[in-house]
């Protein structure tokens, strides 16, 4: 009898703990409902409306979806958006991994902090200011082209700005900390004796890197890439300023559609972004599962 009542008490305690967990989750759930589920629901609704002659008609149609799948303008936009995100992520990774590795192996904590600050600095500067800064730096008469021409690497100025190149460079610049720090964190989590064990067993630096360091820091790479990719998909100001109208990405198109009160196009564009981000997150998640499995 005593034992059973104690067990009941345990169950009640567990129920109580569960209830308090729900209380803690409530603010997050409310925020999700208001800021995510509700807008997505509205988006869905609007995406089926008809827009004709500058006016919104509340009649059900799949026309907008059809246009997104067949109209060349929309296909180019989707392609550009993906291209921008893929290139920015790749550039970020190519810069970040060696950078994180250098910071990890660095002996001087002062230098490490300085580099961390430099990596983090672009986030502190307004996106508008930073983008205009890059247009100056990358302009035909700008310092980068000056140096390239002086070094004889190019005969004339290379167009680095008002196109995909400049946009990718600027995006990679600002998303660098979101990739460097997850990678660095995964390196710092790595047990240092693992590398010593590899060296003790006769492995060269390259073999140690390839079979120990890289596979065990891949989760950091995946996390960084996930963040960089999804943030790049949603970028607006940078492609607007540095793309010079040549980089057609979904956020810009959504902005234009919204100012024309073309809600259905804006809604389908938004859903497109959502689906792309979702696919990317799932795909990257798969990759990190794979890296943990090998």
């Amino acid at each position: 009898m005593a034992a059973s009542s104690r067990r009941d008490g345990g169950a009640a305690g567990r129920a109580k703990a569960e209830r308090s967990a729900w209380v803690l989750l409530t603010p997050m759930c409310l925020l999700m409902a208001v800021a995510f589920i509700l807008p997505v629901g509205l988006f869905l609704l609007y995406s089926f409306y008809r827009f004709r002659g500058g006016r919104l008609e509340e009649t059900f149609t799949l026309e907008t979806y059809w246009r997104f799948m067949t109209d060349e303008l929309y296909l180019i936009t989707i392609y550009d958006t993906l291209q921008l995100a893929v290139l920015a992520t790749l550039l970020c990774l190519v810069i970040s991994y060696p950078l994180a590795y250098a910071m990890w192996r660095m002996r001087s904590p002062g230098l490490q902090k300085l580099i961390a600050f430099i990596v983090f600095a672009p986030v502190l500067v307004s996106v508008v200011v930073r983008s205009y800064g890059w247009t100056v730096v990358l302009a035909d008469q700008g310092p980068v082209n000056f140096i390239l021409t002086r070094l004889g690497l190019t005969s004339g100025p290379v167009s680095l700005v008002y196109n995909m190149t400049g946009t990718v460079i600027s995006l990679a610049h600002v998303f660098l900390p979101f990739v460097v720090f997850p990678i660095l964190a995964s390196m710092l989590r790595l047990d240092p004796t693992l590398r010593e064990a590899a060296e003790d067993l006769g492995a060269s630096w390259w073999k140690t890197f390839r079979s120990i360091t890289l596979p065990l820091t891949l989760p950091g790479v995946v996390a960084g890439a996930q963040i960089c990719f999804t943030l790049s998909l949603g970028s607006f100001v940078t492609p607007a300023i540095l793309g010079g109208g040549r980089v057609l990405v979904l956020p810009i198109q959504i902005y234009t559609a919204t100012s024309d009160i073309n809600w259905p196009v804006a809604a389908v564009g938004g859903l497109c972004l959502l689906v792309m981000a979702f696919i990317a997150v799932v795909a990257f998640g798969r990759l990190s599962q794979y890296s943990e499995a090998v």
Partner: peptide
């Protein structure tokens, strides 16, 4: 060759 205190096996 060394056997480490916490063995340092390659977990992956």
């Amino acid at each position: 060759n060394i056997v480490f205190q916490r063995w340092a096996l390659f977990p992956h």
